[in-house]
Design a protein around this nucleic acid. Structure first.
Lengths: 178, 178
DNA sequence: CTGAAATTTCTGTTTATACTGAAATTGAAT
DNA sequence: ATTCAATTTCAGTATAAACAGAAATTTCAG
């Protein structure tokens, strides 16, 4: 399956973006390919399209499945796995966000809580203040994220499209003073 | 300047987080150290505290200055540069966001626009639809970001702390249907 | 139970990035 | 103009991540 020029460039760009955000380039490329593909692909086809070793595809697919971004499906009379990903960008985005929050942000918040206690015990008022400051910020953002992630997708989209317009609906109190 | 245990662990954790998000570990550590420090530090002191070569510190500081996260200051009768960063976590966050949007998101949106045109010209309706879908999503998010970034910081914080509570102020229309 | 296709695991190699230390440059004081 | 501290650049080295290919494992058909 030869890729069109546009598809190829999209995949390359996505791989590049991935590596800038801490995602393995090949993993990002595999995901981009599945995102573009109208139907599920076998590992074999993926490796061929991207020119990477079969084993590398296997590892990347495993990774994507762990992130809940890719699912394996099957066909009657065919033992191979067929892989696919959602074509709904919002859903992909929310999945990635959820995973990174769970794997990185939440453990960090917990660690900062411990470190703030430790810094206080060590009698380091400045360090305590800084760590507590970071801790409070992440908690604030995390609380916001948790609430937002519970909203129905359409409400979420409406809020994004409202943009700064939300403020005009709010009573004065919320607008300003610290 | 020996670091306290809490400070040391904070810096290590921050370096680890950095490398998961595509930021050089040492760069992240230097920033973490400056964030904790009550007063500006020289490159010499930074290298000593983190046990990295002077040249490496120099490169990392340059990088942080390019990101507008670190500023050099001076003292009378001292030729050395003293480096510092904001202790306001919100401001740090917004700076990082602004920089990454400018360097990565905006160029990606532009590239996706071109690729969507190209895919259409190549007569690839599915690929066109996917690329256009991604393009539309990033545009949506980018528009939201631009509006939010223009709000006064206090308004922004209020919105975050309101969380899903915003929805109760909105007229029904915004709440639901696509 | 055997054999073959598909997949995964593992080990050695490659590659990209980070880092060091030396050399070069800058720039202020004399 | 010269010197010297401070900083940056650069070339080589080290390190860690990514990758390929072989070997091992799984899974299903017969």
């Amino acid at each position: 399956m030869a890729l069109s020029k546009a598809a190829n460039e999209f995949i390359l760009h996505w791989g590049e973006m991935g590596s800038r955000w801490g995602v393995n380039r090949t993993v990002a490329q595999v995901h981009a390919l599945l995102y573009l593909s109208p139907e599920p692909l076998t590992a074999e086809e993926i490796g061929e399209a991207l020119s990477v070793a079969r084993s590398n595809v296997s590892t990347s697919l495993r990774e994507l499945q762990n992130w809940e971004l890719v699912q394996a499906t099957h066909r009657m009379g065919d033992r191979r796995d067929f892989f696919s990903t959602s074509h709904d960008v919002w859903q992909l985005f929310l999945t990635v966000l959820e995973q990174r929050v769970e794997r990185e942000i939440e453990p960090t918040i917990a660690a900062l809580g411990r470190l703030a206690v430790e810094a206080r015990a060590e009698n380091q008022p400045e360090v305590t203040a800084r760590i507590a400051g970071m801790h409070a910020f992440l908690n604030e953002m995390h609380g916001w994220y948790r609430q937002m992630s519970k909203l129905p997708p359409n409400t979420l989209r409406s809020l994004v499209n409202l943009g700064a317009g939300v403020t005009k609906w709010l009573p004065g109190k919320a607008k300003g003073e610290q």
